[in-house]
Design a protein around this nucleic acid. Structure first.
Lengths: 100, 100
DNA sequence: TTGGTATATCGGAAAAAGTCGATATACATT
DNA sequence: AATGTATATCGACTTTTTCCGATATACCAA
């Protein structure tokens, strides 16, 4: 993954917020039936509602974050759940600490 | 400093390269008379030449990086030298490791 | 004080990103 | 099969970013 794309993904207030929300979902989202936050993450609709932006915008934002390896998704039935991608975030931390 | 502005500053290939060059100036720039890399940094002209972009573009890029607290500048005579801002970079590292 | 060199700022054209509503797709239920 | 719900994709419009050349400013040297 291109480093520039990672930083572009982070260059937006809403996308940064989504990452912080996903860091502690239990603090930011209501309980979900049939899906625990740690294992599968939070579904798109919850994130969209909290953000206040349109469904299409949030869907695109989530795929930008996913392309940057900052989050990952799981499809379950008609829902898609997104959670933090720890490996990608670790890699980002390494870039900051060793390359720049 | 707004987090988004920090990531925007990093969302450009040339600006990222400048940071990596400034991390090890002795590997990337010729010796400078009257100014050692560690204390004052590298002058704008050297960075501009290496980048291949125009003088005005590089001058602006350097101020974007500086506004994000990623580098700092020292004026000496007619030259401006830029170097890494360790505190700003540390703060960025902390954001990555604790907030997202 | 005149001219030369280094850097900063300004104004603009082109490309990219932000954001929406409309539509498509995928799955579940009846 | 038909309908409903969740998410993704598309097309469009607006705003922001990229990057340039021209010009301004600051400093130095003759």
């Amino acid at each position: 993954m291109d480093q520039v794309e990672i930083f572009k993904a982070l260059s937006n207030k809403t996308r940064l917020q989504i990452l912080t929300w996903l860091k502690a979902p239990e603090l930011h989202f209501p309980e979900q039936p049939n899906a625990d936050f740690e294992n599968v993450g939070v579904c798109v609709g919850q994130i969209q509602m909290k953000s206040g932006l349109s469904q299409s915008t949030i869907s695109e934002y989530l795929s930008i974050l996913q392309r940057a390896d900052l989050i990952s998704s799981t499809r379950m039935g008609q829902w898609t759940y997104y959670k933090r991608n720890k490996e990608g975030l670790k890699k980002l931390s390494d870039i900051i600490n060793t390359e720049i």
